[in-house]
Design a protein around this nucleic acid. Sequence first.
DNA 1: TTTACAATCAAGTGATCTATTGATTGAAGT
DNA 2: ACTTCAATCAATAGATCACTTGATTGTAAA
Lengths: 223, 223
Amino acid sequence: MSMGPKQAILAEFAGVARALGHAHRLELLEHLGQGERGVDALATRVGLSLANASQHLQQLRRAGLVANRRDGKFIYYRLADDGVTDLLTALRHQAERNLAEVDRIRRGYFADRDSFEPVSREDLLERVGAGLVTVLDVRPQDEFGQGHLPGAVNIPLDELQDRLAELDPGREVIAYCRGAYCVFAFEAVAALRAQGRKARRLVDGFPEWKAAGLPVTACRCRF
Amino acid sequence: MSMGPKQAILAEFAGVARALGHAHRLELLEHLGQGERGVDALATRVGLSLANASQHLQQLRRAGLVANRRDGKFIYYRLADDGVTDLLTALRHQAERNLAEVDRIRRGYFADRDSFEPVSREDLLERVGAGLVTVLDVRPQDEFGQGHLPGAVNIPLDELQDRLAELDPGREVIAYCRGAYCVFAFEAVAALRAQGRKARRLVDGFPEWKAAGLPVTACRCRF
DNA sequence: TTTACAATCAAGTGATCTATTGATTGAAGT
DNA sequence: ACTTCAATCAATAGATCACTTGATTGTAAA
């Protein structure tokens, strides 16, 4: 059964969409947005069996959303390009706009942790330029190492209470983490405010910053 | 089996993506991008049984991508908002960038009909403002009636040969149709060039023009 | 070569999705 | 009320997908 060129192309598009059509794959993509990773690391973080993660990753690869490379006996996956983050952002915006269910979950879990508006990327750039704020990266150390905002301080969320002294009490803190639905930044802002600090959250997260073409500091300590 | 807030939200996102994950639904969305339509009209155009089209449309509605209204015994579907077109555009761009298969089909069927670059929306606006070009809408009459570019002339593709006289031979023609993979505009440009006319194609199509926030002329002859 | 380990492949089961069929609902007209 | 027709619903069979298990491939080190 053959079909016209349009049907064939639409079927390809549908294949890409179907690749995004599973929560586990979206979570894998979120992690890959932080930087490239081995299969085992991804499987552990997302809570999948190795074989299952491998198969999901291959599905993403077939759809052209991720690429991989071999280094020794490890295979590292990465996003195919920054456009993937854009597509994910478009998907998120669409879902936020028209799905009551998303809004309900957001309110229940996130809204009360976010009484203030998030800071836009443009605002953050401006304030950093003026030396007014401390940028705080609350992701795990290895993700920070794979790339982070210029001048950001890395204090993973679970160490924040013990390392409060590293943050100048007089400066506002702007925290960020993996993305729009990563709870780390929400929690960090809440924790800092509980200590009487001035703290806000960067809109979205690291992958969106990078996809917007803004400067990123990469650590050269790998390899 | 419960899951955290992030998993719940990602599952919702995945639901939206899965709704895009079928060629028939993408084609339905393409048609809905031209304006609202009844179920039967959509089913006919896409070549689906009525029940099948209805079920696909309901799937799109559950995902928040389309909305509907009842008028008498007809039910008219429409895109939920212009953001849907943006999401479809993002999906198309991603697929075009990283899927060799799409490129292969494009080259085979479209490339040789498109030896010249398409005209951007900005260029078209400028040239229309300067009165330099004729804008040609080659979609069927009813789609033209539901909304079209300001000042566009409507000659459906199958009538083009007979109605060539309506186009000023001295002016360049810029043709458009439903979208990036609608063949009408390609065919029209090829036909006009075969007659020795100057003709080019607008990039993308009508829904993308509208989603870009550019002016649209709607016909008030419905209802 | 042998061992070890990362990752993939292969096969099987249960779940979900697609398209068809025929019945049903809802609004208009007779 | 009865008929008509648009659209949806319900039930089904076939196809595809998700996850597990166990075997296999590919690379590095002993």
